[in-house]
Simulated assay, not measured.
Amino acid sequence: AGRLRGDLRQIGVVAGAALAPQHPTPFGTAVTTHVMARFGVAAVAGQVTIDRISIFAFGFVYALTGAVGPIIGQNLGAGRPERVRGTLRASFAVTITWVLGAWALLAAGCPLVLRAFSASGETAALIALFCHWLAGSFIFTGSLFVANAAFNNLGRPMLATAFNWGRATLGTVPFVLLGAQWGGAPAVLVGQGVGATLFGIAAGAVALNLAGRLHDGRTQGGDPQHAGVRV
């Protein structure tokens, strides 16, 4: 019984660390939708459509963040911190490149997007705002995702939880509320993008700093257990 409790405790620690970062995004989306609902059905329709477009346009970034974690973990275990740092930098570069390309396509194809969703009025205005201007903010959302993958595989899962909840609360609530007060539905989307940008930059900087403090496990006879963060 004692061994079972110990095993369950260890499983709970890992499962809890993996589960905790999954809740902030729905929370932040719910807050934004609640605020957007003040401006009517058309505004909510615009926001929901933008969410669907984002998943399609930036699906590669979601896939990248799922793939980069095992690469970071493998190289950390092999005692190759320079590869961890290289993987992290390359992931940020690929994220930026993909988002810029998708943003350009969305801006150029905005009329087609509006026709595809039969959007008009306020809904069309919000979608056009996203396609022409706000899609670029996903660079920083993607950077947050990459940083979270690094945190989880460098033994700092609580940093991923902290940044995700920070973006969903401090990076969402005040910005969308101020946007709603000052500029209506379009400013709500702008506020959401500003908050994501701030937390994406912060998370990326912390992840790079964390990777920069890794020491080379090969200097300890090649034992992967000696690879880690120099504190």
Rank of each mutant, 00 (worst) to 15 (best):
I72N: 13
S118I: 02
T25D: 02
L4A: 12
L198M: 07
F117S: 11
A135K: 13
R156E: 03
C131G: 00
V35S: 09
A43L: 15
V231P: 15
L76G: 08
T25W: 04
G16P: 01
I72V: 15
A119W: 02
P157F: 02
F117G: 07
G79E: 00
V113G: 09
F145L: 15
F39W: 01
A90E: 08
L159G: 03
N164P: 08
A185P: 01
G73C: 10
V13M: 07
G109Q: 15
T25G: 02
H132M: 03
G59N: 08
L159S: 06
I50A: 07
A37H: 12
G12D: 01
T141E: 05
N164T: 07
T32H: 04
G171D: 03
F151L: 04
D7E: 11
V231Y: 12
D7C: 05
Q10R: 13
P174Y: 07
A1N: 03
L106N: 09
L198Q: 01
W182Q: 12
G195I: 03
L8T: 04
S137G: 07
T33Y: 09
V231W: 15
T172E: 07
G191H: 08
I11K: 10
R115E: 13
I72C: 11
T197C: 04
A102L: 12
A108K: 14
I55C: 06
M158R: 13
V35M: 07
F39M: 04
V68N: 13
Q220P: 00
S143W: 14
M158N: 00
V14M: 00
T65I: 03
F175G: 02
R9M: 00
L208M: 09
A102S: 15
V231S: 14
P186G: 04
N152R: 14
P70H: 09
G171Q: 05
G46Y: 02
H23T: 09
P224I: 07
T169R: 08
G142P: 12
A20G: 03
Q181R: 14
V113Q: 12
